[in-house]
Design a protein around this nucleic acid. Structure first.
Length: 647
RNA sequence: GCCAGCGUGGCUCAGUGGUAGAGCUCCCGCCUUGUAAGCGGGUGGUCGUCGGUUCGAAUCCGACCGCUGGCUCCA
């Protein structure tokens, strides 16, 4: 007898081994129909898996556990897509098909490249498979027998997958009954009970992907798709993508006339006057905070003798990504990092322990020759400015300095309204310099600092730089792609290579520890991120144009001009739209430019020395005196308020 | 760098072998305007570049450049 316990503590007894489906049927036909899988001991199993011992089970439906259901739907849909592609292209070799954040993909080895033109046919075939409502069947084989079977089939990818799989038995899934040449795939599972449980799906894109992510391996075709429990959810997701596209910083950069790119300089952003306003506001704030936190600022040259880069070790590791120039028969390199230049500044005179910690900031312009395929708007460029700083300190000062950097970083992010960020700690890689002891001490200092701030973080073992462990700050863009912003890196290499010293209390020369840190990271990338974060609707303090004065007709042009002059004098960035247009047209135009405040001036306003304020994004208006408007706007700017005070 | 797709006025896009199009922007008029596009007219493109096929190429083919989506990479 098998006794099954349910989440509500009731128990059901069965004569012998049962399946979760039979349990569901016993509870009720509705549940049997809705059930997608079952959870036993925290593990999700097929609805049709046999349970031969007393246990507690939980039936999974789209309602009871939407997350697990979605994962089942997507993984199963990956099989359906692979099956459809195999039907259309029988030579297809299956590789690997996991779920990912917003759907799934399947890596395939095909005899001919797929293109988006093939998607409709694939989707049609998938729809037929879903409509046929075929059961997913699992069967298991002892490892040696299964390996022999895979060897006979001759798919090197599946053999490789099987070798990596754990356990003494390997499982296969067929769609439709086992045998009869039905679609079959080596797979751990679990799956939906039937193909018909996939409510809605779409083939999204195709891209190349190296087998095992190894650039020396064959390039496979990765077909991306997504699936949902029903059509409505799919549509919602597609709408979300459409909305996200409107926030794309590349689109907004053009629309708001912030920056441009040109064929003459791929990967090199050209900043327009509007873009420079945002840029400079950002930097004014950045400098203000750094001054308050005890940083000084330096600036080092962009082009330096190539020898320096041999000394720093950058040439050995990164010469492929560096730009070089030859002047007066001497080899120079364009700097990809600021630290060697910073070290020369440090070395320009002796230092005492009394000076430490030294916090030396540099808004350094660096060039890196990134591979052509990775360029991406402002997010991945070949020329960018880092908000770099190097902190020279003693090992004992590391922890406090790290805490100081974390505090400053989070404070600055908060001002921009960036609260959805996550931290990662990267530890000692295989290829590294420095003793295990110093790595341990440094890593502990980073951990202690994180613990002191009570911050959650993920650990990337072995992912640190060769010269030291690091903490990275990450945020996500409007399309949920993750980007690194800030970084805190300990460096045991550079002080050594540049023979940096300070004179300690006991009058002996000692080696300082160097902390590299950036908060915004690449200012260019950060600009892109806040453009997307705000959807182009900047807070007043950052907005290129803060207010636009719009006379109702020519009759009040003169008054509008006088308002414009007053606001300008008060330090507000504004323009006056005296175009020969109706007010509707002016409003429409200003909304398109995402100008925070639209000030309509007609005869009534002239009479009261006021403006009719319309706030970006809304359709309400309120009339305030010009003095009042100036007062509120100035306050809002000074506070660097994220929201519009007059809204 | 690799795989796939794309490249037509400043912007968004139509145009599958036979005389380069639309809307917006911009310029000029008219309207004298009250809160998300008033009306009319006009300027503007060697169709990414170079080569090939063809009587004829934006359209077909090739190379290169750039962009987009991924992969690898990101000190």
């Amino acid at each position: 007898m098998v006794r099954i316990a349910l989440p509500d503590n009731t128990q059901l007894d069965f004569e012998g081994p049962v399946t979760a489906l039979q349990v569901a049927e016993k509870i009720g036909p509705g549940l049997a129909k809705a059930a997608l899988a079952a959870k036993v001991n925290g593990q999700i199993i097929d609805l049709t898996a046999t349970i031969d011992h007393d246990t507690a089970i939980e039936l999974i439906t789209a309602k009871s556990d939407p997350e697990a259901a979605l994962d089942l739907i997507r993984h199963s849909c990956a099989h359906i897509m692979a099956q459809a592609i195999c039907r259309l292209f029988p030579e297809t070799k299956l590789v690997y098909g996991p779920t990912v954040e917003n759907g799934f993909y399947y890596d395939l080895d095909l005899t001919r490249p797929l293109s988006p033109e093939d998607f409709p046919a694939i989707e049609e075939e998938m729809a037929a498979i879903v409509k046929a409502d075929l059961p997913f069947n699992r069967y298991e084989m002892p490892r040696d027998k299964a390996m022999a079977k895979l060897q006979a089939e001759g798919n090197r990818y599946k053999i490789d997958n099987a070798q990596r799989a754990q356990g003494d038995t390997l499982s296969f899934y067929t769609t439709g009954p086992v045998g009869n040449g039905n679609f079959e795939d080596l797979c751990l599972g679990p799956h939906l009970p039937r193909t018909g449980c996939v409510g809605a799906f779409k083939v999204m894109s195709v891209a190349g992907a190296y087998f095992h992510g190894d650039a020396n391996e064959k390039m496979l075709q990765r077909v991306y798709g997504t699936a949902f429990a029903d059509k409505k959810e799919l549509k919602q997701y597609l709408n979300l993508l459409e909305e996200a596209k409107k926030r794309d910083h590349r689109t907004l950069g053009r629309q708001l006339d912030l920056f441009s790119f040109h064929e003459e300089g791929p990967g090199f952003a050209f900043y327009h006057p509007n873009g420079m306003i945002v840029w400079n506001q950002m930097l004014d704030y950045w400098r203000e905070e750094h001054r308050k936190t005890g940083y000084c600022e330096i600036s080092t040259p962009i082009i330096l003798n190539e020898k320096l880069w041999h000394q720093s070790g950058h040439w050995d590791n990164y010469k492929e990504n560096m730009y070089f120039v030859n002047i007066d028969e001497t080899d120079y390199a364009v700097k990809p990092m600021n630290c060697p230049g910073g070290c020369l500044v440090y070395k320009s005179h002796p230092h005492s322990y009394r000076e430490l910690p030294m916090r030396v900031a540099e808004l350094g312009l660096v060039h890196r020759h990134e591979a052509s395929g990775v360029l991406h708007g402002l997010f991945r460029v070949r020329r960018f400015t880092q908000d770099d700083a190097h902190i020279y300190c003693t090992p004992d000062q590391i922890k406090d300095e790290i805490i100081g950097v974390i505090d400053l970083t989070l404070k600055i992010y908060e001002t921009f309204g960036l609260t959805d960020c996550h931290l990662e700690l990267s530890t000692m890689p295989e290829k590294h310099i420095g003793s295990d002891e110093i790595w341990q001490k440094a890593t502990d200092a980073l951990k202690d600092a994180l613990a002191a701030k009570n911050i959650d973080y993920a650990v990337n073992p072995g992912d640190g730089a060769f010269y030291g462990p690091k903490i990275d700050f990450h945020i996500r863009d409007c399309l949920q792609r993750s980007w690194q912003l800030g970084t805190i890196q300990l460096d045991f290499s550079m002080p050594e290579r540049f023979d940096l010293t300070y004179v300690d209390r006991d009058n002996t020369e000692k080696r300082p520890v160097m902390i590299h840190r950036a908060i915004l990271g690449s200012l260019d990338r950060f600009l892109g991120i806040i453009i997307e974060h705000y959807g182009g609707a900047f807070p007043l303090w950052l907005a290129p144009e803060q207010a636009r004065i719009m006379p109702i007709s020519e009759k009040t042009n003169e008054f509008a001009e006088s308002v414009f002059q007053r606001l300008k004098k008060a330090g507000l960035r504004c323009t006056c739209d005296k175009a020969d247009d109706k007010i509707n047209s002016k409003i429409k135009r200003a909304h398109g430019l995402k100008i925070p405040y639209m000030l309509v001036t007609g005869p009534a306003e002239q009479e009261a020395d006021s403006v009719a304020v319309r706030v970006r994004g809304g359709n309400q208006q309120k009339t305030v005196t010009i003095d009042e408007f100036i007062k509120v706007a100035q306050k809002e700017i000074e506070q660097r308020s994220i929201s519009l005070l007059l809204a």
